[in-house]
Structures are given as structure tokens and as C-alpha cells.
Design a protein around this nucleic acid. Structure first.
Lengths: 210, 210
DNA sequence: TAGATTGTTAATCGATTAACAATC
DNA sequence: TAGATTGTTAATCGATTAACAATC
């Protein structure tokens, strides 16, 4: 449906930001926005906005601008968010628990359908109405609940093994929160989020010893 | 102490990954590692590793490689992690709570010294030995506890205002977890982490409608 | 010395920005 | 028509990679 050359990774991230602004604009009843408006709200240049959109089609009207609702819908479609996605969280520790309750996911169409752990204290219980299953049940539950995405919040030592099982179970998209580099087959989409590393960007710039 | 031209943002992120590998290598008693070893473990090219390090100095021995412990210490110094940092978390909701208990921060020298909220139900209580103060007490507590970094985990609508107060209180490094673009003065270091956006990278690549 | 691996330069690649024709 | 803003091309900028001299 959309062209797909090599599109910068950063473009995808910016589309998310644009879509949030467009939704706000629509809710405020604004009927037209310019690339300049979008750029100011999201901290990029107008040229960047137009270039990002140009990868996927022509969504505006020359001399006029963009219709917020229309462009929002287009971007959601580009991002694959015109459907709901079923997500499982691996690891029912602090981070997994927090992510399971994070409202931001639901707002964008992500539903946490269950969690997995190996701790007998946790397995079989519910966390705010979300079932915690044993990791051994993964294959079965993945089919039953149609799990499409995995969020990995297990300790670093366990991460590669858990990811292997996730891939085995036919889940193709994975976010890794464990501070370790994970390897997956080519057809799997994997992203790593390193929380401590985020703080280290700050300390690098603030650190005085250089 | 170190050269500081324009260093790619991504270099800083990779240094974090290198340092983790080097620590492991040292713990295993490995006496020498090559750029090739580091590259394989962290998923980059050997040239990238050497280039990243070259921004800051010469840390290896030609024909031999790098000493893990030595290079680890250098990188930690580059990242500003040769000291402990005091961190405050803003927002004692699900995400803030999880982050307050995240072990990965402590391991890298970040100490969560307190949290802030405005909910009377939460203010004055402790969360696993971490005090929750009212946002009004920020200025006072920032001095008293020497808060150096802020993690913002408040609702999107409140984020800009909270960040303004953080800046006012003299805190110069901020991580924003709220899904909204925040503006700060030039001398403040700000990073945004958008959790939902991370999942959207996956759905973009997995989405079939393009 | 021969083999290995760094540090660094030059070439390549890719992403951002500026500029402008198209067009509402 | 005049003014505005898109879509797109070309120029610029920056980051990654390849190649190799330096040197252990």
C-alpha cells in the first residue's frame, strides 16, 4: 500500500510524535495544520516533516496544508496502528508490572493479554486482571491468545533464552528491556530499550571531567 | 580532560554497551580484548568501536588489543560515571514506582534519593524506603538532598509544568517519560523516552498494509 | 622478523536541510 | 491574481565503513 524504500529509523519515531499532535489538533477542532505547525510542536524543521511524509505519499494540499484528522489516520495506518495488537510481557518483576499497567500502551491500541514468569509465587496469579502464566505454557498461550508482540523485562542472564522461546512460539516483534545484546533471526523485529543508558546520556553531557 | 568535538549521539549509547561487555570480560579474567571482540558482543563493526574510542583518546596497544579493566574505567569516566549521581523521580504512579525499584540504575551508580507527587494519598509516605514529597517541596529538597538528575513520569498534561519547576530548582539533567514534547533552556540536558513509540517501531515493520 | 591489531585518514553512504517549481 | 504552502530535487552535512600505515 505504501512505498517502502529505505526509510530512516528516525522517521518512524517522528511519525509517532506527529500523530499525537494531529490528534490534539483535531480534538481542538482545528481544520488545517501546516508543516510549520507540526514542526514547531514536535521540535523538528518543516522540511523534515514534509520529507518524512513524502516517503509514504501526498497527504496535503499545496497552498493550504493538511487536514489533521485525515493525516492522523494516514499516519496510524503507516505505523500499523489501524488495528489492535496483542502484547505479552515477559517477567513479572517491578518493570514488567509497571509496563503492564502503563496506560500509554492501551491509548495506542496495544493490549496486554498476559504475562509470563517462572517464579512459583507469581505463576497462576493475576496482576490487575492480567494472568501470569508459566513460561512453559508460552507456545500454547501464544496461539490461544494470539500474542503478536513481546515485551521482555527479565534479568539480563535470562534474556537470550527467553527470546529464543518467544521466537520459537511464532512471535515476530520483540522489545528488550534487559541490558544485554540479544540475537534473533532475520525475520524477527527486535528493539532494545536501555533505561540506564538513557541516564548516561545526561551524565555524559553534565560530567565535568572532560 | 577529553577532547570534545561533535560526537555522534549514538556513540554515547554504544559506549554504554561496550562498558557492559568489558566489565563481563574483566570478571571472567580475560586479560585482552580486541575491537573485533567488542564489536561482536555489541552488534557493531570493529571500525565503529575503534572510531568511537578515538574521539576520546588512545586506549589500546597496537598489535595487542585493549585491557578490559582499563578500558572499562576510561569509558566510565567518559560517561561521567566515575561518581555516584543523585536522582529524583517525579510522579509516583505505576511507571514512577517501577523505575524507583529498577535495579539497573543502582548498578550504574544512580541513586534514587526521593520521589515527588501531588496526590495527598501518596505524599508523606514511603515507597520501599524512598520518601515521597509534595512537588511544592522541590526547591528545598533539591538543595538538601543534592538532586542532580530528574526522571519525569507524570501525565502528559502536567509534564511541561513539572519540568519548569525542575529547571527552577537547579536540576540540569532530565529524562522525560511523558509522551509529549517538552521545551527547556539551552543549558539543560533533556532526553525523551517514549515507551509506546518503541512498540510502534515493531508494528511499522510488521504491519502488512503497505 | 612475521603476525596481529590499533589509530586514523579517506571514501562511502545516508539523512537532513535549503530552495524552488507546482498548485491551491 | 497574489499569497501561501506543499512535494520534490539538489546541496549540505554528518556518520559509518574500508583501508592502511604505525607499531606492538
Amino acid at each position: 500500500m505504501f512505498k517502502k524504500f529505505k526509510i530512516p529509523d528516525a522517521t518512524i519515531g517522528r511519525l509517532t510524535a506527529y500523530s499525537r499532535f494531529l490528534k490534539e489538533a483535531e480534538e481542538k477542532g482545528i481544520s488545517t495544520v501546516s508543516s510549520q505547525n507540526i514542526a514547531e510542536a514536535t521540535g523538528v524543521t518543516p522540511a523534515q516533516v514534509r520529507k518524512d511524509l513524502a516517503y509514504f505519499g501526498e497527504f496535503g494540499t499545496r497552498g493550504v496544508g493538511y487536514n489533521p484528522k485525515e493525516l492522523y489516520n494516514y499516519i496510524m495506518k503507516i505505523l500499523g496502528l489501524d488495528k489492535k495488537w496483542n502484547v505479552a510481557i515477559f517477567g513479572a518483576g517491578n518493570l514488567g508490572t509497571a509496563l503492564s499497567q502503563y496506560r500509554g500502551f492501551l491509548e495506542r491500541g496495544f493490549e496486554i493479554v498476559c504475562m509470563f514468569d517462572t517464579d512459583p509465587e507469581k505463576v497462576g496469579k493475576k496482576l490487575n486482571a492480567i494472568d501470569i502464566f508459566h513460561l512453559d505454557e508460552l507456545k500454547e498461550k501464544a496461539k490461544e491468545l494470539n500474542i503478536e508482540l513481546a515485551i521482555v523485562a527479565v534479568p539480563a542472564q535470562a534474556a537470550q533464552e527467553v527470546v529464543n522461546m518467544i521466537v520459537e512460539a511464532g512471535i515476530r516483534g520483540i522489545i528488550n528491556f534487559a541490558p544485554v545484546n540479544i540475537f534473533v533471526p532475520d525475520n524477527i523485529v527486535l528493539r532494545r530499550v536501555d533505561l540506564a543508558s538513557q541516564l548516561e546520556y545526561l551524565t555524559y553531557y553534565l560530567g565535568e571531567n572532560r
